[in-house]
Amino acid sequence: MMFEPTKLPLPVDASTPVAALTALHNPKPLLSLRQVVKVYPTRSGDITALKGIDAEFYRGEFVGIVGKSGAGKSTLTHMISGVDQVTSGEVWFEDTPVHTLSEDQKALWRGRHVGVVYQTFQLMPSLSLLDNILLPMEFCGTYQRGKSEERALELLRAVELEDHAFKKPSAISGGQQQRAAIARALANDPPLIVADEPTGNLDTATAETIFSLFETLAERGTTILIVSHDRSLEDRVSRLLTITDGELSEMRSLR
């Protein structure tokens, strides 16, 4: 059965397409990067992965970031999601200076405001799909027995995995695991989803499903940032950034 993204539970603050549209035209960016530099010291000398990135992302945007392998795509997602620390520059999430937060503060901020999706799914192997989705709610203090489980099941139902709720990740296919990972990313209703090569391990049909899911989320006001080396992304996103050698060399709006 084909997955129907319209069944997704709606984000809290963008319950209608109108609201999402309003959000899109809100002049205040959800996320701003200011002169972000990331340098990795290595045995053979320092490698600058990001060379002073400036960018702004707004509510409801569906942004694609493309580039060749080693261009700095993943590093950029790490800076945006606070998974890694900038060497210099600033990352602002609305009024929160993410670049100044401690590891623990970043973890809590990320859990509440950013859903991260990886190519390798990164589900907890020892937990069921349901528990995987409940875990962010528990860690971020949004867990309430009964209500949270209801929401997690709703999310699993939305990604067509309700029947697999009590299975471990190893018992389902790669496409299903990625859908579970997206459901987990949505657990705390984050306004921003960052996906690093989310379809890299999936076949074309499954990849199509995942993209549809993201499109629906973006239409309902969630900001989606997808990183990929796949140029076919260009047709689906509202804005495309190209990263080359650590610089955002091209930036254009497609829609």
Binding site: V83, E103, D104, A107, F139, R184, N188
Partner: peptide, 10 residues
């Protein structure tokens, strides 16, 4: 790493 990714503090 995953737990920290989804919001777990140290």
């Amino acid at each position: 790493g995953v737990m920290k990714l989804v919001g777990a503090q140290r």
